[in-house]
Write a protein that binds this DNA or RNA. Sequence first.
DNA 1: ATGCGTTTCAAACGTTTGTTTGGGAGGCGC
DNA 2: GCGCCTCCCAAACAAACGTTTGAAACGCAT
Lengths: 216, 216
Amino acid sequence: MAGRGAERGTVDRILDTAEVLFAQKGFAETSLRAITSKAGVNLAAVNYHFGSKEALIQAVFERFLDPFCARLDGLLTELETNSGSVTLERLLATLSQSALAVQKGEPHRVAIFFRLSGLAYSQAQGHLRRFFREHYGEVFRRFLEQLALAVPEVPPMEMFWRVHFALGATIFTLSGMDPLRAICRSDFAVEVLPQQVEERLLAFLAGGIRAQLPAS
Amino acid sequence: MAGRGAERGTVDRILDTAEVLFAQKGFAETSLRAITSKAGVNLAAVNYHFGSKEALIQAVFERFLDPFCARLDGLLTELETNSGSVTLERLLATLSQSALAVQKGEPHRVAIFFRLSGLAYSQAQGHLRRFFREHYGEVFRRFLEQLALAVPEVPPMEMFWRVHFALGATIFTLSGMDPLRAICRSDFAVEVLPQQVEERLLAFLAGGIRAQLPAS
DNA sequence: ATGCGTTTCAAACGTTTGTTTGGGAGGCGC
DNA sequence: GCGCCTCCCAAACAAACGTTTGAAACGCAT
């Protein structure tokens, strides 16, 4: 099967390496040879265990998204039972909690994952977009439902757009988290922790979602 | 030289085609053969006129960014002379005006360009990022200066992050403008014009930038 | 020990990639 | 006419790609 106890199995070594390399250089720019040689496994191992490069890419996302969505799903049902009192800030915090809880111990992998998400959104218009919609569309829909309850003054279609604005700010920022922190270090001589970035981001998102409606 | 009057020259045909194909599929996923065959020019024309594929990519950006930054530069000096009364909304509107004015007659190319920007930010960590910083860093810095004057209640470092949040929301949304409008059409049975998206986006950004500061 | 299913491996496969080559049009000065 | 420069073209180039192959190595029942 896998996992001989001490050292990790071939499948996990491939996933770990692919995750990092994809995030660094993109999907098309990362060759299977680069992955397998850095992971210390044979080139043919990818096609043997995953079937194809496309399947490997999906497996990388699945390994993060499955537990994330399960966690988010649980937290959402919790919120739904204590209905009425869900605030916007609480909802946004639920999201980031789900992401952080899944990656407990390796918070830097959250940045890697968002970087991958940004890539996925830009590139590979076809198979990845379908994959996301089919596997995780339901949880997303439930989240939107709660959002509408929390901020009733924003009409549905306006909220649709604002959610995507917020999604963009999140993915874009967390994609480039490390370079941005480096700029912050050199320009302001201040070390900013990822958690502080998260706080700032959530404040920005809340402000944007609750912004005054445009005259139309 | 170029331009025999009636039909466009080889260089422009390559740029026009590359722009569209890059936006559709990404840089690495678009081969020179795909570009040249669709443009109706010889394969070797790219290396002859531009030198390499990397140089072609930069040329595509240059063709849009040079006039855009020139326009923005002019509008900024206008604002600087009538100092004191620059509002945040006015500054944001200046940005989108610059983008639209440059592409007068072909507003859909603005979406293409933002899609390219999103790709550039995700992929190609090296040469494109340097290219942007070296060529257009100065105008960006001046814009930040005006922004600090318009919203003095937000401290510099906080503003630094919020600008990037806003940048992310913009690039991400305009990258996927057409698919998002399609979803809007099917889910809400409403046709949304790009200009309306811009209005909504600007409202969101203004709200986010002026958001209450997080407790820190 | 024997047999079987799983996993690993080096090597090769056929494509596709970006780039280079050498020659041939076409225009222009002289 | 000739020489020169710019541009275009079909063809070939070497390299890198994802994938496939067939055999060797392993673990583990019987």
